[in-house]
Computed example of a mutant assay.
Amino acid sequence: MGARRKTCKDMNDVRDAIDALDREIVTLLADRLHFIGEAARIKNSRDAVRDEARIEDVIAKIRAAATATGMNPDFIEPLYRDLVERSIAHEFALFDRRHADKGSR
């Protein structure tokens, strides 16, 4: 990813680069959300949705990845904690819907 870092000639270059990255980020987040849905489908217990050890593992990995790219891990951690919490809420909703649908048959 670092290979894309370039010196921009003007603000249009900056904005174009940011817009392109934002589109990629949204696509990656959509992919991540797909796998959250897979987790909701696979897990048999609502208690398995929130896994504190897994949360801390994800945060540790994201901090390490940030450090490896030269990014301040303290910048990314709160963003990721919010993403993880929103992902868990989404997974709970999907899990509950899936089990409510099973019960209505």
Rank of each mutant, 00 (worst) to 15 (best):
R86G: 14
I18Y: 13
A3T: 05
V26D: 13
R5M: 14
H90V: 01
I55H: 15
R98T: 04
R63M: 07
D19N: 01
G2C: 05
P73Q: 07
A20V: 02
R4Q: 00
M71L: 01
R4W: 00
P78T: 04
M1V: 02
N12P: 00
L94N: 05
E85Q: 04
F75M: 11
T67E: 10
D82L: 09
L83T: 13
S87A: 11
G103Y: 06
I42L: 11
S87T: 07
I59V: 11
K102H: 04
M1W: 09
R32W: 08
R5T: 07
G2S: 14
D101R: 05
A17S: 02
F35C: 08
E24S: 04
T69E: 13
A3W: 09
A64M: 02
I76Q: 14
R50S: 08
R86Q: 11
A48H: 11
D13W: 10
M1P: 08
L79T: 13
D10L: 12
R46M: 02
E85A: 14
E56Y: 12
I55C: 13
D19H: 00
F95G: 08
D51V: 09
P73I: 09
E56L: 12
D13C: 11
L33V: 12
R5H: 04
D16Y: 08
P73V: 03
N12D: 14
Y80A: 04
A65T: 15
G70V: 04
N72I: 00
G2Q: 13
F35H: 13
V49M: 01
E38C: 07
I55W: 14
L83W: 15
D47S: 11
A20Y: 02
E52W: 15
F35R: 15
H90D: 03
K9A: 11
R86F: 05
P78E: 08
Y80W: 07
D47I: 05
M1C: 06
I36E: 06
K102M: 10
A3M: 04
N72Y: 00
I25Q: 08
A53D: 13
D19F: 00
R15G: 02
I55Y: 15
D101H: 13
D22T: 15
A40S: 12
A39G: 10
V26F: 13
I55S: 15
L83V: 09
I25N: 10
A93C: 03
E91Q: 10
L21M: 07
I55K: 15
F35Q: 11
A40M: 13
A30M: 09
L83S: 12
D57V: 10
D51A: 08
I55V: 15
A64R: 02
V49C: 04
S45G: 09
D101L: 12
I55G: 15
G37M: 05
D57F: 09
A100T: 03
K6D: 02
